Amino acid sequence: MIRPRLGWSLPRVFAHRCGGALAPENTLAGLRIAARLGLRAVEFDVMLSADASPWLLHDELLQRTTNGCGRVCETRDAQLRMLDAGAHQHPAFTGEAIPTLAAAAHACRQLGLSANVEIKPAAGFEALTGEVVARQVRTLWGGCGTAAGVVILGNGAGGGARSCPNCRSGLLERPPADWLAGAREFAAQTLHCAAESLDDDLLCEARAAGIPVLCYTVNDPLVAAALLRRGVTAVFSDRIDCVGEDQGRFAG
């Protein structure tokens, strides 16, 4: 098993988009469900509004996950606050709001959840999104010197890493053959890649460099267990009810 050189212990499972398939994605309801199921870490996406404020949203358009429409980057904060991000999942979640990054950080700290903050910029806003998100991460998590670990990554992660040199950063890649050069350029401490893109050569290269590998999106507990046995450090999952760390399904 890879032993991360991060100054904090990586959990084996991250709840994808806050609560996986059990809650509306990127919502506080998802964070609460993840914590209730015994998860120690969550992943969520952050995009900027027209006011350059960071909100938990994955898509550039609002239609799929809310009752709004239009581009996130053209929508003001006041409008985003009025939208419903829960009813599309189930009537029980009607009225669930889109959270700001600040609200998500507060909830994570209250619930004892580590966070993987994925930078999701709209086209043309890569650098600004990385810089804004990194600055807020540094402020909200106190420079990442707390018990709850934070990793920032994704498109714009380079700008984020430069804006917040004390933050832990990860490289989100498919990955290309020269991924290690990119990791070194941005001082990335973890590599995040699609499970189907993973091969033994990549694992060996990452192990030699002391860089933990995290795989997405893994919804089969048998696949998750196989990846962990091969040397993957953690997986991101939508099925936290059966892949979660408290399910006792993993061989160490």
Rank of each mutant, 00 (worst) to 15 (best):
M1P: 13
R3E: 15
R3M: 04
P4T: 05
S9D: 12
S9W: 09
L10C: 03
H16S: 02
R17H: 09
A21M: 01
A23Q: 03
E25R: 13
E25S: 11
T27E: 11
T27I: 03
R32K: 15
I33G: 11
A34Y: 04
G38W: 11
R40A: 09
V42K: 04
M47P: 03
L48V: 10
P54K: 14
W55P: 04
W55M: 06
E60V: 05
L61I: 11
Q63C: 02
T65D: 00
T65Q: 01
N67A: 09
N67Q: 15
G68M: 11
C73N: 05
E74Y: 14
R76T: 00
D84S: 08
A85V: 02
A92V: 00
F93N: 03
G95Q: 14
T100I: 15
T100A: 13
L101E: 07
L101H: 12
A102R: 10
C108R: 13
V117L: 14
E118H: 07
G124K: 05
L128A: 13
G130L: 01
V132E: 08
Q136E: 07
V137W: 06
W141Q: 03
G142D: 00
G143H: 12
G149M: 03
L153T: 09
G154A: 10
G154V: 11
N155V: 09
R162I: 08
C164Q: 02
P165D: 14
P165S: 13
N166D: 00
S169K: 14
S169C: 12
L171D: 12
L172E: 05
E173I: 00
P176K: 10
A177G: 14
W179Q: 09
W179I: 06
L180H: 14
G182A: 13
A183F: 07
A183K: 08
R184W: 05
E185M: 10
T190H: 06
L191R: 05
C193V: 13
C193D: 03
A194D: 13
S197V: 00
L198P: 04
L198N: 02
D201T: 12
E205L: 05
E205T: 12
A206Y: 05
C215A: 15
V218A: 05
D220F: 01
D220S: 03
P221L: 05
P221M: 06
A224D: 06
G231A: 13
V232H: 01
T233W: 04
T233V: 08
A234P: 07
A234W: 08
V235I: 12
G244I: 12
E245N: 06
R249S: 05
F250M: 15
G252M: 07
